[in-house]
Simulated scan of single mutants.
Amino acid sequence: MVKKEVEQLINNLIQIEHVSSTLYLAMSAYMDRKNYTGMAKWLRIQSEEERRHMLTLIDYLAGKDGVVKLDAVPAQPSDFGTPLETFQKVLDHERYVTNAYRQAYDYIRPIDPQTAVIVQDFLREQIDEEAQSLTIVERLRLAGNNTSALLLLDQELGQRKGGAAAGPAPAPAG
């Protein structure tokens, strides 16, 4: 049986990933509506990746005989501003997620080293999540209001491939 504080911590991380998935899906719909189809695709894949993270955490907690609690997800905005403003929100959110995993790791490490390894895997992945987001923000800043540059960047982001390779491997049950 999993300790209550571990169960609560994993449920908090599940909620963060659930909100992240919904946020990026809302951003994807917004960018699609603005005809930035490549950015929309990138954000849709990001949403799917966050959902896989959530499912990995759910499977881990359930495999330890923990109780999974899925709370309501707040409504997301339908307008995120310019592409730069949208991806700045992505970067800010990824930094928030990194901080949440860092705090979770610091808390859980002395209590449950096995769970700490799982949390550390997600924390390690956040390095790449933040770096990708920062690169996109910096490139959007360089593009400024240049329509050609924005469309080129949109096309480039549309080349992103989705798939099971993104994110830590699913945790074994037990």
Rank of each mutant, 00 (worst) to 15 (best):
P83E: 03
Y60G: 04
V119R: 06
Y107R: 15
A166Q: 10
L153A: 06
V73C: 06
S20F: 04
L152Q: 13
E7R: 14
A171T: 11
N35Q: 13
K3P: 02
A100D: 11
L23T: 03
Q126F: 06
R139V: 01
A149C: 05
V137Y: 03
A131I: 06
A173P: 02
V6R: 06
L134Y: 10
T135C: 00
H53E: 05
F87R: 01
L123F: 15
S133N: 04
D59H: 14
A165H: 11
Y107S: 14
L23I: 04
A104L: 08
Q103N: 15
L142V: 10
A149L: 07
A116V: 13
R44P: 01
D65R: 13
P77I: 02
Y107C: 09
I45D: 02
N146T: 05
E17G: 00
A40D: 00
Q103G: 15
K64Q: 11
E7P: 15
M39T: 02
L43P: 06
D65K: 15
R124H: 14
D121A: 14
Q114T: 13
L55H: 06
Q126G: 07
D128Q: 14
L13Y: 10
E129P: 03
Q155E: 09
W42K: 01
A62S: 11
T147H: 15
I45S: 02
R139N: 05
S21H: 02
M27T: 01
E49M: 02
R102G: 13
V119T: 02
G144I: 05
E17R: 01
E50A: 00
L150Y: 04
L84G: 01
D92F: 11
A166T: 15
L25M: 04
I58N: 03
G38S: 08
T147N: 10
R124M: 14
M1N: 14
L134M: 09
T37M: 11
A116C: 08
D71S: 14
D79F: 12
D121E: 10
T115N: 10
S21M: 01
R124D: 14
Q155W: 12
A62K: 14
K69M: 15
I14K: 07
K41P: 04
G162S: 05
L13P: 12
S21G: 04
D112K: 11
L157F: 12
L13G: 12
T82C: 03
G66K: 11
V19I: 14
L123S: 07
G174Y: 04
N146H: 09
Y107E: 12
D59P: 00
N11Q: 09
L157K: 12
I45N: 03
D106Y: 10
A100C: 14
V90G: 02
G162M: 03
L150P: 05
V90Y: 02
L84H: 04
V68H: 11
Q114A: 15
R124P: 00
R52M: 04
V97Q: 05
L70M: 12
A62P: 00
R44F: 00
M31I: 01
A116M: 12
L55C: 06
A131C: 05
P77G: 06
H93S: 09
K161W: 03
A171R: 10
E5W: 05
T22D: 07
G63H: 04
T22K: 07
E138C: 00
I127Q: 13
A166W: 13
I14W: 05
